[in-house]
C-alpha cells in the first residue's frame, strides 16, 4: 500500500517545516521529563562506560608501551590510541539512544497502535524522543568520563579545526546510530525475538564501527568490509577527523560524505520498510 504516512488530504495545505517541528518538539521535552525521573540510570551508564573505557585503554596502552617514537601499529602513538579508544567509548554512550529497545517493545506489545492514532509520523517521533536521551548521556555520562580519564592518562590534544570537524561528524554519527537502531527495532514486525537481533546488532556495530579495534589495525580484507558498511561512520569516521588522520580537505570531505550518504540511504530504507510494515500491521486483541 502506498502513502500510509505522508500525503495530506487534498485541499489541506501541507504544514510548514517550522509547524512540523513544533508538533514534534513536545516529544523531546516530554522525553526529557520522563528521563529526569530516572536519574540513577545515568550513574549506571557512567560506571559501565568508565569501566569499559578503563579495560580497553589500559590493555592497549600496554600493547603500545614499547612502540617507537614515530608511532606503533596503525601509526598510532600511545596517546593517540588512548584518545581513540576513550572517545570511541564516549561515542558509544551517545549512540545508546534506546530507540531499538523502545521500537521493538512497542511493535511487539502492539502499543505502536496508540502512536498511530496521533497526527504524527512514528519514526520522526522516535527521533525527537531520543534527542534528550542523547543529550543527557553526553552531558551526564560522556563529559564526566572524558574528564576523569583526561586526569589520569595522557591524551592527544587535537587541532581546533579537527575538533570542529569531529563535532559535525559526531552529529552525523548520532543520526546514523538512530537509523541503525530504528531498523533494528523494526525487526519486531517480523520476529518476536528482537532481543537476539539487538544483541547481534550490538556486536556487529561495536566491531565494524571500529569501537573495539580501530579499522587501521584490522587485516586488509576485514578493513575493506568494515569500510563498505555504514557502521564505520559511527566511530571510525568521527575519530579519523578528531585525530587528524585524514589527507587534506578531500580526505575530510570523504569521511563526511560517506556519513551523509549512509544517513540518506538508511533514511530511505527506513521509510520504505516502515511503510511496508504499516500496511501489513496486524494488531490483535484489545
Amino acid at each position: 500500500m502506498s502513502g500510509v504516512d505522508v500525503p495530506e488530504r487534498e485541499g489541506t495545505p501541507r504544514p510548514s517545516p517550522a509547524a512540523r517541528v513544533r508538533h514534534y518538539l513536545p516529544f523531546a521535552t516530554g522525553g526529557l521529563q520522563s528521563l529526569l525521573r530516572y536519574r540513577s540510570t545515568f550513574v549506571t551508564t557512567g560506571v559501565t562506560a568508565a569501566a569499559g573505557a578503563a579495560v580497553t585503554v589500559f590493555l592497549w596502552r600496554a600493547v603500545y608501551a614499547g612502540s617507537p617514537p614515530g608511532g606503533g601499529p596503525g601509526g598510532f602513538t600511545p596517546e593517540g590510541i588512548t584518545t581513540y579508544l576513550l572517545m570511541a567509548q564516549v561515542l558509544q554512550v551517545l549512540h545508546a539512544n534506546r530507540v531499538d529497545d523502545e521500537v521493538a517493545a512497542e511493535v511487539y506489545r502492539g502499543d505502536v497502535a496508540v502512536m498511530l492514532v496521533r497526527p504524527v509520523s512514528y519514526p520522526v517521533v522516535r527521533f525527537f524522543a531520543c534527542l534528550p536521551v542523547v543529550a543527557a548521556n553526553a552531558v551526564l555520562v560522556g563529559v564526566p568520563v572524558l574528564a576523569l580519564f583526561a586526569l589520569i592518562v595522557p591524551l592527544t590534544v587535537p587541532r581546533p579545526v579537527d575538533v570542529a570537524l569531529f563535532l559535525v561528524s559526531t552529529a552525523l554519527s548520532v543520526l546514523l546510530a538512530f537509523l541503525v537502531n530504528l531498523l533494528t527495532g523494526m525487526t519486531g514486525f517480523v520476529t518476536t525475538n528482537t532481543w537476539g537481533v539487538r544483541m547481534v546488532k550490538q556486536s556487529v556495530v561495536a566491531f565494524f564501527a571500529g569501537q573495539l579495534v580501530p579499522l587501521a589495525l584490522m587485516p586488509g580484507p576485514l578493513a575493506a568490509v568494515a569500510s563498505a558498511l555504514p557502521f564505520r561512520g559511527m566511530v571510525d569516521g568521527p575519530l579519523t577527523l578528531l585525530l587528524g588522520r585524514y589527507d587534506g580537505v578531500a580526505g575530510a570531505a570523504d569521511v563526511l560524505a560517506r556519513q551523509i550518504g549512509w544517513a540518506a540511504g538508511l533514511t530511505l530504507l527506513g521509510a520504505v520498510l516502515w511503510r511496508a510494515s504499516l500496511s501489513r500491521l496486524e494488531v490483535l486483541g484489545g
Binding site: 495530506e8 502492539g110 496508540v114 484489545g286
Partner: peptide, 23 residues
Amino acid sequence: RHRQANARSIGVVFGQRSQLWWD
C-alpha cells in the same frame, strides 16, 4: 491512506491500551 490527516479530526480511546505518557 491519509492517516495523519484523519488523526487530526478523530479522538480515540482504547480501553486496553494507554495513550498517555507513562512516566
